[in-house]
Design a protein around this nucleic acid. Sequence first.
DNA 1: ACAATAAGTATAATATAATAGACATATAGT
DNA 2: ACTATATGTCTATTATATTATACTTATTGT
Lengths: 71, 71
Amino acid sequence: MGKNLRLKSSRAAKDMSQKVLAEAAGVTRQTINAIENGDYNPSVNLCIAICKILGKTLDQIFWEDDEDAEK
Amino acid sequence: MGKNLRLKSSRAAKDMSQKVLAEAAGVTRQTINAIENGDYNPSVNLCIAICKILGKTLDQIFWEDDEDAEK
DNA sequence: ACAATAAGTATAATATAATAGACATATAGT
DNA sequence: ACTATATGTCTATTATATTATACTTATTGT
């Protein structure tokens, strides 16, 4: 799986550490780290929670990230 | 959790049964049924697979469905 | 040089998504 | 009345997301 650089960058834009984002989303730091590094496949509810904290939508952070770019 | 009526309706718009959608997405019928009925919280990769089959995006089917409507 | 924070990673344990198999109901076609 | 399909639901099992603990490296501030 590819890294999720849009997540990493959106988090950086809010100047949040992985730890702070994790606590806000109600998960552990390892989970945020693993998502950013593409180590696994989070639940959609967790994605939604993360997006709301970062002020983004699902499409902006999770759509067509790890994909073949479609064109 | 609330039902996902947008999923049910998008599937109906393509005249697909739960079984056919499940096979196309590589999961079982029970999984599709459970998502439509809000019985659990699918992985984002499965959501993406479903959206692509139905010609929709994550935001159109999974964003702000089971939420407090924000306003 | 020391202390503190951020990030990456690994392992073992726990929670839950997802499967497999089965049964019930309703509808539509013959 | 029979058959087939679609949906809903239940139980038990398997796969995997997520946790908890811990160690490492890099960076920044004092």
